[in-house]
Computed example of a mutant assay.
Amino acid sequence: MTDERNRRWTLALGVDEDEAGLSDRDQRLSSALTALYGEGEDAKKGKGGLGGSAPRVAKWLGDIREFFPSPVVQVIQKDAFERKGLRQMLLQPEFLATVEADVNLVADLVSLRSVMPEKTKETARQVIGKVVAALMERLERKTADAIRGALDRSRRTNRPRFADIDWPRTIRANLQHYQAEHKTVVPERLIGFMRQQRRIVDLDEVVLCVDQSGSMASSVVYASIFAAVMASLPVVATKLVCFDTAIVDLTEELADPVEVLFGVQLGGGTDINAAVAYCEQRIERPSKAHLVLISDMYEGGDAEELVGRVQRLLLLGVNVIVLLALTDTGRPSYDPHLSARVAAMGVPVFACTPDQFPDLMATALRREDIHAWAADADIKLVRGED
């Protein structure tokens, strides 16, 4: 108790972390507070302060969201606008010119939206638009190709797209064209898979149900972008539902991913059961539906009812997938007990990267074994409870 009291006083008084015996995490916490509230010698020595660097501000915003609950973060952000001139920095063209296409920065700007004046919001839209454009360029083509063309492996073609070439059959069919001097086969005839032609009345439904609590910020950004891409494709009917303890259906906004992100409210509690119940109501054809729940599974609502609801969806024929995170790096923090209970019903539960997501959706649309796909991709799945 004494050690904890000393730790709290050390963090409150802001003494020199290097001499205070603080852990690495507490030193980061102290630095985050000193950057905003540091005065006197620390400020003179340059230890605190946000400065005018966009990367430094992005890191600081990420730190305070990690260390403090949402109501406290709101207070700190308001203080930052008043004390450190972040409003002025966001309005500077120089800031826009130097900002990197970073998904975490988008999440930070979205979380700041509620404390921004209207003029600053417009500048933030420009920043978010720039980042979204870069991410769309990276992800759009692969997503469109993968989802537009869940492959029909029962039919073959001699004029396949490069991505659809059946290389084992093509090589066997062209062995007579082996070039010994080059040690390779020169194929004169390509063999590949034909793509399915889907009727509008037979479209698959994809419902992305996204946890917008603070810990899921990066996943929300990526999910919103993927939803916007899929909504632009005529081969699937896409819906986007974001939730904390409230539920926001952003399906009608999917034509504009920036507008989608401005409809997200990062932070707050988590009621997964209520969100899945809403999505259940939005599903029109269960046998053609895919529910992708993106959540760390820390349920603040009724966990027992959630498990029963997922079981009912499976019995109706809905293809349920749980993504614990949709991020570029890092191991997600998640509720292992609830995740294992859901996995025990046969639901694939795992984290994946944005680059893996298009292939995941193509596998889901073909109703192939996602457990096998994940194993082939070296993705660790949550094991079900015995």
Rank of each mutant, 00 (worst) to 15 (best):
G40F: 08
P168V: 09
Y278S: 03
M216F: 03
D369F: 02
D166F: 06
L326S: 07
S23G: 11
D296I: 03
I247K: 04
V15Y: 07
A289G: 04
P257M: 06
P336W: 04
D335C: 09
Q212R: 13
S70M: 11
P71E: 08
E280C: 03
P93L: 13
H290T: 00
P257D: 06
A124S: 15
E140I: 05
P257E: 05
P348C: 05
A217H: 03
K239D: 01
Q179H: 14
E94T: 13
Q176P: 06
E305M: 09
M361S: 01
S70A: 15
E39F: 14
I171A: 10
L96I: 08
L96W: 03
F226A: 01
R7Y: 03
D271G: 05
A146I: 03
S215T: 07
G40T: 09
G268T: 09
L90N: 00
K59M: 14
I128S: 01
L381W: 07
R28T: 08
V276D: 01
V131G: 02
R155W: 06
W9H: 11
P117F: 06
S154W: 04
V73R: 02
K84Y: 01
C279D: 03
V186M: 14
S232R: 08
D302Y: 04
G267F: 02
R195E: 10
T329Y: 15
L36C: 05
T238R: 01
V73Q: 07
P348T: 04
C242E: 09
W167I: 15
V103N: 01
V72K: 14
D302S: 07
V318H: 00
A228W: 00
V307Y: 08
T157M: 02
A303S: 13
D166H: 12
C279E: 02
P168S: 08
T184K: 15
L266F: 06
F193W: 15
A58C: 13
A124F: 06
K288C: 05
R156G: 02
G301F: 03
V185M: 09
